[in-house]
Design a protein around this nucleic acid. Structure first.
Lengths: 214, 214
DNA sequence: CGAATACTTGATCCGCATCAAGTGCCGTGG
DNA sequence: CCACGGCACTTGATGCGGATCAAGTATTCG
């Protein structure tokens, strides 16, 4: 038991009824750091980034949400205010579940809480793996891995150098250099602003090889 | 609702009955990276560190567990193998709850799952805040903050330079330098191997001041 | 078309790691 | 009891990875 059958949680018709739909445009904020949660969101389409600024004005991309991800559940379940800002990266369609309906849904569908808990548990692992990478891996490797990860979250979205860097702790110039290098090694291709990975296998082989000699 | 009344989960007599006690000595491992969870642990006394090594042999201290913390719940709830090693930092007394009893307990006491979820949610915030600090804050500031945090987890344990550094991405030499500097500024005192913060207020003021001019 | 934003490339700088050579400090066994 | 081996810590000298600065070009959008 304690095994939610879903990797992606199915939003049933009944659940839909206790939510309402919102459309958000690139650049808008779903919520801002410090705000008090009034419910949780479910992203039907689009890309949303969880962003925080450091004292020195550095912009970190903490987490990425794409199609069929819940958003804002961490703060809700922690009973905390938002610790970062959810910024819309590409036009999005979002379902909003106010606190009382999400509470009702959780008691109605026990698997929902298990699902959200599992998400948190996995996000915690990913975050801690990144923490480990920040001190143990060079930027170039982190950038390559990040590119792969972001592509897996949304393969069509045009990830910018700034976003890639924000996710793995690199400046845009550094990302540019890394990507140009990867292109010169024939590991990726650039078509206009689109980044293409011709062969994931080659890409992974390259990363593994680089990891050994670091 | 969805507000667990406990900050620390009370292990009742009945719960105790479905666990068994283990004693572990400094240096032993509660579990190792890659192992399959067979239950979760509850730390009655002692200090345990969640540790991971990078490819380059770098040792990161991902999370710290002290008295009355659950340990190993993340992997259990994520249905994943352990992503890092739980290493005993000081002699510990641990309660072990095998999978089947923890599952029984969760269905018996619904607040238990809510409590664990809340822990995960808060640990995720802390991890993401650290991620942000790694790129946005200088080592000296990270070291000072880490000292404060580790002291809050266990004020008596003699935290080593290596542990402080492992938590915030610094080498032991750098930690030594930072601590010596803080001592010269009268923000901390050293008595043998023990680090003393004479006034938390002064310490916080100092950190805030430093943050502004970074 | 012009303005704003994304990207590129080279030159320089500096924070922290790395290397090196110590000094305590503690536990263990003869 | 002291000798010793080992680990934690200290301090200085040096090096390098990636940030920063600067000066562009390309691309998108109103």
């Amino acid at each position: 038991m304690i095994d939610s059958p879903f990797e992606q949680f199915e939003i049933s018709k009944e659940m839909m009824n206790s939510s309402h739909k919102k459309f958000l445009q690139k650049g808008e904020k779903l919520y801002e750091k410090g705000d008090i949660p009034s419910g949780i969101f479910y992203l039907s389409s689009g890309v949303i980034g969880l962003i925080d600024l450091s004292v020195s004005g550095n912009e970190s991309l903490l987490r990425i949400f794409s199609k069929d991800n819940f958003v804002g559940h961490r703060s809700f379940l922690a009973h905390e205010n938002y610790h970062a800002t959810a910024s819309v990266l590409s036009d999005s369609e979002v379902l909003f579940f106010p606190c009382d309906s999400i509470e009702k849904l959780i008691s109605l569908y026990p698997d929902l809480l298990l699902f959200l808990t599992k998400q948190l548990a996995r996000d915690l692992r990913r975050s801690e793996e990144r923490l480990n990478d920040f001190t143990g891996k060079k930027v170039f490797l982190r950038i390559a891995q990040t590119l792969l990860y972001l592509k897996s979250k949304d393969g069509n979205y045009l990830w910018t150098r700034k976003e890639i860097g924000g996710f793995c702790g690199a400046k845009t110039e550094t990302v540019t250099r890394a990507l140009s290098f990867l292109e010169s090694e024939k590991i990726i291709k650039k078509e206009g602003r689109k980044l293409i990975i011709p062969s994931i296998e080659n890409f992974l082989d390259y990363i593994r090889k680089e990891e050994l000699l670091s």
